[in-house]
């Protein structure tokens, strides 16, 4: 497909366990298994799911941080090959990442100006005064003072540090920014500031976001489209309004029912449907549909045959044998 910023086709990331002395090798852990998705320019795709569903592994695979076992990932038309340093270098000027914990993303011994300017310096895109000007502009763009460039990360609060990380991610003017739980480690009042900033920056610069989060209310606020992952696979994708208005996959429905709304009247009026059981281990998936062990609609068909993602007229795709029931 041309014109898309990110094109993931049938991507798979399997982790093999090595056998040892007197120990058989376990079957591979299928962290990501047959995932396809695409992001258009200026679009925000929300990727939601619970811990262990493979959403962060997928995000890492897009930047070549983990090798693909199968399938293909293209960023701005260029294939990601984690074994090829030149290809990775090219990808990373188009795709950047913002992680959950800004304190762990910044070198404590590097002034924030040096941290933000480093991508430009490494690529020889700016030096001296030009570099200082670019860093100042980036700091201003994320709502920080340009003369803070000489300070070190410890001098900033959590929210300010996340702004610094965002400024650094923007330095190379990427077409895609992958945000992996960017507000989960922040206090509620600071969360809103960072979400506002991400929305503003996208309006000004037109880049796309892959917004990875377990927090449905945040995804509802910021995403144009949403993909729901369960145990390495996408079970449903739809526009934000369709997904939240008319969730079709029983797992999506369970997630929406479980996420508490910050409004006691609405929250207490919601039908109580507590999903039983726990996530099976991704190293030991049930045959057929991975959700069948917890699904209220599961039938014999679900336990034997894996449902394919099938497109619906309103643009949604659902992988469920019984989605319309």
């Amino acid at each position: 497909m041309s014109g898309v910023v990110l094109d993931v086709r049938d991507a798979a990331v399997h982790f093999r366990s090595r056998g040892g002395f007197l120990r058989k090798a376990a079957p591979p852990l299928k962290a990501v298994d047959g995932v396809s998705l695409a992001i258009a320019p200026g679009e925000t795709l929300g990727l939601v799911g619970e811990s262990g569903c493979g959403k962060s592994t997928l995000a890492n695979a897009i930047l070549g941080l983990v090798p693909l076992t199968g399938g293909r990932i293209e960023v701005a038309g260029r294939a990601v090959d984690s074994a090829d340093r030149d290809s990775l270098s090219a990808i990373r000027s188009d795709a950047q990442m913002v992680f959950q914990d800004p304190a762990l993303s910044l070198n404590p011994r590097l002034s924030i100006g040096a941290a933000i300017g480093e991508p430009l310096l490494v690529r020889g895109l700016a030096t001296g005064t030009a570099l200082r000007d670019r860093v100042a502009a980036l700091l201003k763009a994320v709502g920080l003072e340009p003369d803070h460039a000489s300070r070190f990360p410890h001098a900033f609060s959590g929210g300010q540090r996340q702004r610094i990380v965002i400024a650094r991610a923007l330095a190379l003017q990427p077409k895609l920014v992958i945000c992996d739980e960017p507000v989960s480690a922040l206090d509620v009042s600071v969360r809103a500031q960072i979400l506002n900033l991400l929305v503003d920056l996208q309006r000004e610069r037109g880049m796309s976001y892959l917004f990875v989060s377990h927090d449905l209310s945040v995804v509802r606020h910021i995403a144009d489209r949403v993909a729901v992952m369960y145990l390495g696979r996408i079970v449903e994708t739809a526009s934000m309004s369709v997904l939240f208005g008319k969730p079709r996959h029983p797992y999506t429905q369970a997630l929406l029912a479980a996420a508490p709304e910050p409004d006691p009247v609405r929250q207490r009026a919601k039908p109580r449907r507590v999903l039983d059981g726990e996530l099976p281990s991704p190293a030991n998936l049930p045959p057929g549909c991975a959700f069948s062990s917890r699904c209220p609609l599961a039938s014999d068909l679900c336990r034997s045959e894996r449902p394919k993602l099938a497109a619906r007229p309103d643009g949604a795709s659902v992988a469920c044998h019984h989605a319309e029931e």
Partner: peptide
């Protein structure tokens, strides 16, 4: 605090 939360 309440107004800063993304919500339905």
């Amino acid at each position: 605090l309440l107004a800063s939360m993304p919500r339905a």
